[in-house]
Design a protein around this nucleic acid. Structure first.
Lengths: 128, 128
DNA sequence: GCTAGACCCTGTAGTTACTACAAGGTCAAG
DNA sequence: CTTGACCTTGTAGTAACTACAGGGTCTAGC
């Protein structure tokens, strides 16, 4: 199949597919006589893998590690587990930070009066 | 004071201060005869404002809107409230997304056996 | 046969919010 | 008079794409 088809199948922009190939995340496509990229099922699976990993918040580098592991004929489960674990911790940390942020914002918002006044305590607060 | 002093006072890298000036977030510093930037209390307050807003997760563009509002002699509280509200919603959405992500990752992790096996169901799962 | 339109190609520049140099000028202390 | 800390500018790098510009290719309709 051509790149447009793969793009439609995986719901991923054409540019992104080319980009993943360029940075070596996706294996090189076979080229037809006219220079067009040609893909098969194997490519589709790789791309799915990458897209799912990205959707789970893995960075490009982490995805690369995952694809490297998956590329081995006998991927070691322990390595995958480790990557997964580190990433879950990252996500956990981000959630905690955002929650702290939300609390601070709510506190700030609580200082607003009904919105009819012209003096804004929020700005004063941020100004220190 | 010079830029190094401001940097130390606000715990913000020198480069970042120059960067904020360059993109117009921070008002231009007065220049001394030797070309060095010179700052006063007003600048320190602006920078604090920017740093606090950024720490609360406001984007550069949102910070710009906030500073624009703060710049008015009679900032309208309602406008500030609106910005704050939109941002709290953004943060809320991010938290929800990360929680969903965490759940998916935990499910994936649960498929790992004790880590001694060589076949990895996690990779199979991502591969689809 | 020809042209319109859909598809494909490469390469470069833009995005966000900085960070990290490189190459040089200024100034106070020893 | 030199050493070192500080300052200046400008450019390039980061993540992870996205958006062109300027072309080539192929198919369908007239």
């Amino acid at each position: 199949m051509r790149i447009g088809q793969l793009s439609a199948d995986c719901d991923c922009p054409v540019e992104t597919i080319r980009y993943y190939e360029k940075i070596g995340l996706l294996p090189q496509a076979v080229r037809r006589a006219n220079g067009y990229r040609s893909y098969d099922e194997m490519h589709r699976k790789w791309l799915q893998f990458i897209l799912r990993s990205r959707a789970l918040g893995f960075s490009q580098d982490e995805v690369r590690q995952l694809t490297d592991l998956a590329h081995q004929q006998r991927p070691a489960c322990a390595d995958v587990y480790e990557l997964l674990d580190a990433h879950i911790n990252d996500v956990q940390t981000k959630i905690r930070e955002l929650k702290r942020m939300r609390l601070a914002l709510s506190r700030l918002q609580a200082q607003c009066h009904d919105g009819t006044l012209h003096d804004c305590p929020v700005i004063d607060e941020l100004m220190g």
